[in-house]
């Protein structure tokens, strides 16, 4: 329901001149639009300004063990909060640095809205046209909020307390590997339909008897501390990792899944996260590409999507471009033009 979706603007005084749509409420005081009803939304304190994390001198990007840069991303947080409380919209209250470029503002919009959340927009005259265009784009595609994530693994937890810390970081790092994931509550077997593997991040004991039928039917159930074994057509995998090193946990998950289950792959995209969804009827899909470096990439990025979609269209906030696809390994590979902070690849069967 597009009308009830809150798009707040941080503006303490009377509104600036000009068209502010699709902004529809104000956050932190101000006049001229209704106030954001804070009780009706979730505003997480853990949200971070989205960016490539720089070293202390600010001169170079920090990188992880693979050499890929660390990014401050909120997609996992938006998805986790939406899962925990689907009735309350997620709003990210993050503020740009004084020197933030218009592309950085656009990234903040995409980092929230691609995952079904909203960003408390900060008005700056030079960036406002792009911020508006980005918000309007996502509002025009509001149906994407309800599309299913294409996932190789379901992350099982209730995502409170320790679950939130472990599960959240696990999701954050799965996204850095472009591993498609969905979320499932402990004991909810319906949420595992169509997903080949599940990772137990909950601190609770696994109700193994409940999961065994799913495993025996071909599922892979992963957890730390389990004894690995085959069960019917599936397997139980005890990961050789510790929650003290979530990077190691996620590497072990990916290894247990094997890259055969990758839903997409990216090249020359170290600062990108992706989020790949499919419509309920399965005939359309979208792969969001979010570039945390915000710079229009100088390297040519390519993407492989495991499903052989018939056509692909690149949608940025400015235009749509038809993409050339090549069949590779049962899916399609697509060379992409230089990308800015965000692009969507719209797919049709």
């Amino acid at each position: 329901m597009a009308q009830s979706f809150r798009l707040p603007l941080r503006w303490p005084g009377s509104l600036p001149a000009g068209d502010l749509s699709p902004v529809n409420c104000l956050y932190g005081g101000g006049e001229g639009l209704p106030a954001l009803p804070e009780a009706e939304v979730q505003i997480p304190k853990r949200a971070q300004w989205p960016s490539v994390r720089m070293n202390r001198q600010g001169a170079a990007a920090e990188s992880g063990p693979t050499g890929a840069p660390w990014v401050n991303a909120n997609g996992w947080l938006v998805r986790m909060l939406r899962f925990r409380d689907p009735g309350r919209q997620v709003v990210l209250d993050t503020k740009p640095a004084a020197a933030a470029s218009p592309a950085a503002y656009v990234l903040a919009v995409a980092d929230a809205m691609a995952y079904g959340g909203a960003w408390v927009a900060t008005y700056a005259r030079e960036s406002w046209p792009q911020v508006r265009a980005a918000m309007r784009f996502f509002m025009a595609h509001s149906e994407w909020r309800d599309w299913k994530p294409v996932s190789a693994v379901a992350v099982i937890g209730d995502f409170t307390g320790l679950d939130e810390a472990n599960g959240g970081e696990c999701m954050n790092l799965l996204a850095r590997r472009q591993v498609g994931y969905s979320l499932a509550a402990p004991g909810d077997l319906h949420a595992l339909a169509g997903v080949g593997a599940a990772m137990w991040v909950s601190g609770r004991e696994i109700p193994m008897e409940k999961y065994l039928p799913w495993v025996r039917g071909g599922g892979t159930l992963m957890a730390i501390g389990l004894a690995s074994r085959a069960e019917g057509s599936g397997r139980v995998v005890g990961l050789d990792a510790s929650w003290k090193d979530v990077y190691g946990v996620v590497a072990a998950i990916h290894l247990a899944l094997t890259r055969k289950t990758d839903v997409l792959r990216l090249w020359n995209a170290g600062s990108f996260n992706s989020f790949y969804q499919v419509a309920p009827d399965g005939k359309r899909g979208v792969a969001h590409l979010i570039n945390y470096s915000t710079n229009r990439s100088s390297d040519d990025t390519s993407i492989w999507i495991a499903r052989p979609w018939r056509s692909a269209m690149l949608s940025s906030f400015e235009k749509q471009t038809s993409l050339k696809t090549m069949p590779v390994n049962g899916g399609i590979e697509i060379p992409l033009p230089p990308l800015g902070a965000y692009a969507a690849i719209e797919l049709e069967a």
Partner: peptide, 8 residues
């Protein structure tokens, strides 16, 4: 790295 290509 396998994620790095010469252009496309």
């Amino acid at each position: 790295r396998p994620s790095q290509r010469l252009g496309h």
